[in-house]
Design a protein around this nucleic acid. Structure first.
Lengths: 286, 286
DNA sequence: GTTCCGCATGAATCGATAG
DNA sequence: ACTATCGATTCATGCGGAA
């Protein structure tokens, strides 16, 4: 199945209004952070961040399907020696608007930005806020199961050796059932902490996250053919990952510079999807 | 230097009033989480949590030195398929009271509670909220430097063969005080993400955190002889760690049962501080 | 004395059932 | 309708006994 994402060059709030209500399965986005990236997006002052985001939040609520999910990657910056409160104020406001704040995932950035300050250490984590319209949202947990920890490997290795000898010695003693039980145990469900290194190779966009991040949430919250929206597309990481995974995708970007990069990335992925897919590093959870 | 902690049996809010203003260097505490530990503390309803905590917060502000730090370990629970907002409301209220919200550390709980639900994964992290009265607070960053990546791993592996304590061999990353003296080269500053397992063998208290947690913050925010306060002492982890590290300590606990456990632990540590110190596992940052 | 293995134990959460 | 209680589910870790 070959689906080319829809890329829209324009103002996020205006363009969202052209999208039908209840049509999107997953919104995954990383909006411009307050007052940072001045050179690119212009920057919104922290004190005005909530007022700026709420109208957009309202449109996102409208376009999301009842069982869809909105995932917001955000982190407050330190301003004047303090953490600003615009993120937690935003959570409160979005709840007033009708969003359910269902979960907060942590993205642990294993190779965070270097630096030293007298009053704080390097910031190695970001928030991944999950919002929903309904308590019963779609979630495909089996799609993101992972191998169990090292503790199990050692023990299962020993176990499987004894299993083999017994299996050779005796025939059809019903031991196979036990083995299959243990095999199930080789996979476990993940937690709400994601360990991912930032991709430093990404040249142009100043706020790129690793492909594995949208990839994980797209697997968790959508099926093939579902629709993924990124209203702050940037250089198109989320959109092209969705494309490669066989999801429909919509991306909105106001700056032609980034829009063009995203366009090229999408064309490239359309030409050789397998190669593009292999490029997605799945290095979650250590 | 031998300093015995001051343990107070009584109501937190009342007893705090007996402590002089501007006398404490570090407050490190983990108050009863909303509605949990019902069997022990009675539990506060999430909707009333902020109102319950704010008068205590006011007293904590009073007793803290201008350059001191308040570190609050807390996590909101999921209620009715949503994350409750009492923690972020608490942050807003404390700012109104005059606290600076300077940082939010993440405690990544490597061995979080198991379970499976249709709409969420296991919760593997807690907040460590840092509050201060003044932008220029005391912070001794050099005290918590850690060995860098690969070098540390190799070094520590060899080490565990030489210095054969059982616990070092087990997790492969533990190192004692004597060892850290060795490793003056190739040390780096940590980040604001801490990787620690909960100590589950502790039958004493239903909510004991690992000793390495208060140990790290006591090193970071206090010197020898400084005063550490834990207004919700529980079985006395914070207080006895502070004692072993040569800090003065004050602990308040309302339940005689826990108070007695803390009392015993303190007496034990006073008798043999070296042995007690070695028991503190420093296995931070993986 | 070391290594290996069995086992209990968590600051959990949801859905169903009962009052 | 709304609150209180209970059972089912799940996995990394430390401790203790055994080889």
């Amino acid at each position: 199945m070959k689906i080319t994402p829809v890329l829209i060059l324009g103002n996020c709030l205006e363009e969202l209004k052209t999208i039908p209500a209840n049509s999107v399965d997953l919104i995954f986005t990383s909006p411009p952070y307050a007052d940072s990236r001045k050179n690119t997006y212009g920057g919104i002052h922290p004190d005005k961040y909530v007022d700026w985001f709420m109208p957009i939040s309202r449109e996102l609520f409208r376009v999301l399907k009842p069982k869809g999910t909105f995932l917001l990657n955000i982190k407050e910056k330190a301003l004047n020696c303090e953490r600003h409160t615009y993120v937690i104020e935003l959570i409160m406001e979005m709840k007033r608007l009708g969003w359910l704040w269902t979960e907060e995932f942590i993205w642990h950035k294993k190779n965070c930005y270097p630096g030293k300050w007298p009053n704080r250490f390097r910031d190695a984590w970001e928030r991944l806020l999950q919002f929903n319209k309904d308590k019963k949202f779609n979630m495909y947990q089996n799609e993101v199961m992972q191998p169990t920890g090292d503790w199990a490997k050692n023990r299962l290795r020993n176990l499987s050796e004894t299993d083999k000898t017994r299996d050779n010695a005796k025939n059809g003693s019903g031991f196979g059932k036990n083995v299959s039980n243990w095999l199930k145990r080789e996979m476990a469900y993940p937690t709400n902490v994601l360990h991912l290194a930032t991709e430093c190779g990404n040249k142009n966009h100043s706020a790129a996250f690793p492909k594995a991040l949208p990839e994980w949430f797209i697997r968790l919250f959508t099926k093939e053919g579902d629709c993924v929206l990124d209203p702050f597309m940037g250089s198109g990481t989320t959109v092209s990952v969705a494309q490669i995974m066989g999801r429909r995708a919509i991306g909105i970007e106001i700056l032609p510079e980034y829009f063009n990069i995203a366009q090229r990335q999408v064309n490239l992925a359309a030409k050789n999807p397998k190669k593009a897919y292999e490029k997605i590093q799945i290095s979650l959870f250590r």
